[in-house]
Amino acid sequence: MSNTLIFPPHIELVSDHACLLTFAESIDEHVAEVIAKVSQALHDCAGIIDIVPSYTTLLVTFDTDHYDRFKILSKIKLLCERIDLNATSQSERRDVVIPVYYAPEVGPDLEDVAKQCSLTVDEVIKQHSETVYRAYAIGFAPGFAFLGNTPEALRLPRKTTPRLKVPRGSVAIAEQQSAVYPSETPGGWHLLGRTPLTLVDWQSDSLALIQVGDRVRFEPISREQFIAQGGQLDGV
């Protein structure tokens, strides 16, 4: 068990309708797993209207119009106490595999990253796709998951000039993080390739492919597979 974990978490009211649960002072994979568990436990709790899990914290927004804050706070405490940190049920553990076409035509920074890291393009692909990542937080844009940790050999600072348009599905790295762009947005990360998968679909029941706490792996695919799975080559 990690020694950075604070459990039960420290609970602080940050306004009249929200409290912040703090689980650690530093980023840690085990902490992320605990936060995902607590997040799930609070999900169906009456009176709680929004939950924002992040690296070391959980922000809980509650409905003060119909519920008393003291009752909600004691309920949160109680739910936390009831959680068995050692239990890992099959339903809780989510593994997500993301097929990626790693190539300069969809990953315009791939060759540059290889050069800066003194690796070959194949080595970059191997390193990036052989790592199992954890979704630590979602933010920046709907469905944009911050995945850690990118292998040390591939860690580069963000680009000095961000791109105005990063195509949807782009797989990118910056510092110790990796991410897939769920929609076309500006972005300053290094683009390595692209996935044919749709990351967010508000019309479907699943809504977003990656959720906080998920384990994520990238699987290299060929150009033919990418196109067969509906991948688009435009827009870089």
């Binding site: 309708h17 690296y55 914290t57």
Partner: peptide
């Protein structure tokens, strides 16, 4: 700080 949830009015 380490990124965390932002509530209304923060």
């Amino acid at each position: 700080i380490i990124s965390e949830g932002i509530t209304y009015g923060a």
